[in-house]
């Protein structure tokens, strides 16, 4: 166990060093990610100036919804960059090196690389939005709320991590899964910034049961904000996020364990 921690420490040191080798570059790139994501929010801000609210959600409540989405992604990408880039790792032959070493494959994938720019950009935006909105949406913060919030963020991280792990595993069978990832992850994520009650039933179904972004931000936000549109859904959904995260991650992990036996290196 001690040597595992030591190894994690070494990996983290090396990654951080290589990502932050050029300071100005690192700051600008993180800022670029931050601004890229923030533009979307600014557009919504201006739109809501005209409409006042969206199905009962005012602008600050919307920002709170967004903050959960960005914060969980920012934390998730620290650990799961290796899975995001798994396709190119396989194609470049780097995965062969992992196989030849006497350590767990997933362990190596998770700790060998972290996209710190995405983490800072998304995470920073998440924290900024939280700071802007948290005081203005009428949440009375106490111990229970805070614990709920921490567990729910952890659950949201696991849900998205599970999707990344699942999509990475598909790389073992298919050579290219980027367009699939675009379809079921990035496109659905665009919907996830809004309260799902405004969408068609089919999209709601997709967001709850297929790519459960609703558990990443909508239902947790409902627990804290208690808007009227929650009456459309079972109340229990507000408490399920950590459980959904753990179950999804377990399923994705079992799928990974099952599939990795079929991995084949290229010939020469």
């Amino acid at each position: 166990m001690k040597d595992v921690l030591h190894l994690i420490g070494m990996y983290t040191k090396t990654t951080a060093k290589s990502w932050f080798q050029y300071r100005v570059d690192a700051v600008l790139k993180s800022l670029a990610v931050f601004l890229r994501e923030a533009t979307g929010i600014i557009v919504i801000w201006f739109t809501l100036l005209k409409f006042d609210d969206l199905n009962g959600w005012n602008i600050y409540e919307m920002l709170f919804l967004f903050s959960l989405l960005f914060l969980t992604y920012g934390i998730m990408i620290i650990f799961f960059t290796g899975l995001r880039d798994f396709g190119s790792t396989v194609r470049s032959g780097n995965f062969d090196r992992f196989i030849l070493r006497p350590r767990g494959l997933l362990f190596q994938i998770i700790f060998v690389n972290s996209d710190w720019f995405a983490a800072l950009g998304h995470g920073g935006l998440g924290i900024t939005l939280f700071l802007i909105s948290a005081g203005k949406v009428g949440i009375r913060w106490n111990m229970y709320n805070a614990v709920y919030y921490i567990f729910t963020v952890a659950g949201g991280v696991l849900i998205q991590g599970a999707v990344f792990l699942f999509l990475a595993t598909l790389n073992i069978y298919l050579l290219q899964t980027n367009s699939l990832k675009g379809l079921i992850y990035w496109n659905m994520r665009k919907f996830a910034g809004y309260p799902i009650s405004i969408f068609h039933k089919a999209i709601q179904f997709f967001m709850i049961y297929v790519m459960p972004f609703a558990f990443v931000n909508y239902f947790p936000a409902q627990y804290l904000l208690r808007k009227d549109d929650m009456s459309d859904y079972p109340e229990i959904f507000m408490y399920l996020t950590p459980a959904v995260g753990i179950v999804m991650y377990l399923i994705a992990y079992l799928f990974w364990r099952f599939s990795i036996r079929f991995y084949k290196s290229s010939g020469n």
């Binding site: 070494m10 090396t14 060093k17 032959g93 780097n94 062969d96 090196r97 006497p102």
Partner: peptide
Amino acid sequence: GVPLLCHDDTVSQGFELIRNMYG
């Protein structure tokens, strides 16, 4: 094409990593 040492590490860091990995 399957390098043993990481590109960004120095040589001695790469060896230290191996020492850890193989205990």
